[in-house]
Design a protein around this nucleic acid. Structure first.
Lengths: 133, 133
DNA sequence: TTTAGACTTCGAGTTAACTCTATGAGCAAA
DNA sequence: TTTGCTCATAGAGTTAACTCGAAGTCTAAA
């Protein structure tokens, strides 16, 4: 089964503009075309796009993702680079998880702070501690 | 104790350019100045900046953070808005946590995939399943 | 066969969040 | 008092990642 750019966009919650932009940036060299030039995405292309979205969500810029895509095309000679890259991404995501936990702590603190203030009708209830924003 | 913009930048791992930009965008109306115009950050200003960085890390744009800063200046009348905002941020962060867990799953899968391929010396070891990127 | 809708490329425009340059002031040490 | 560092503003420049407009092609339904 093959899919048009519009179908893929809908499936992955992207726009067709974004997919064409990815292609323009060299992220989708594996996507085939019809004789008239229309892109035909296969199942494995969609899986590759999910990996691209995964890398993007770790904060990896498009240019670095392209480097990875180039490595894939280069075959077994680049297995070590690709392994190292994913190990590095793993470390990045672990750091993000720590960061997000700290963020959640502060957000929760603020939820409690404002719940208490709201119940009291005034923020002054907290002024005994210190002035907060 | 009060701090210069350079000291605050170093402390919070920001640049002085960024801090001045925040000020320009209305995020730091509470920071006092010397008679000659130099910014003097107090302890509570640094705490406020940490909240700003926290909101930023949830993906909140500067303009929305400014709205919040304006609410703070408006006092008790905006307690409900501020509470609602933090509840919304909490939901956003919870979604981010789910997203990041999925990301980590895929990254881990890829780490294992490439470790196995590397040990075998070729990616073909996985070709029995399906072609992967 | 014409009309609608989805597809194509090229290149320009947009947006957020910085990031820096130019120019000048304040201040402390040599 | 000059040197050097940090501070200030205004406004221009940068960057990434889209996002879109123009102009044209392809295909299926009416």
């Amino acid at each position: 089964m093959e899919y048009s750019i519009g179908e893929v966009a809908k499936e992955l919650n992207l726009t067709v503009y974004t997919l064409r932009y990815y292609d323009k940036e060299g992220l989708l060299p594996f996507v085939n075309r019809t004789s008239s030039g229309t892109r035909l995405f296969k199942e494995s292309d969609i899986e590759a796009l999910k990996v691209i979205e995964c890398l993007k969500s770790t904060g990896m810029p498009i240019k670095e993702i392209k480097t990875f895509i180039d490595w894939v095309a280069d075959g077994d000679a680049t297995l070590q680079q690709r392994y190292d890259m994913f190990l590095e991404r793993k470390a990045v995501v672990e750091a993000q998880m720590e960061e997000i936990n700290k963020t959640m702590e502060l957000i929760n603190h603020k939820c409690n702070y404002y719940k208490t203030a709201l119940d009291a009708g005034t923020e002054d209830i907290h002024k005994k501690d210190k002035i907060e924003v």
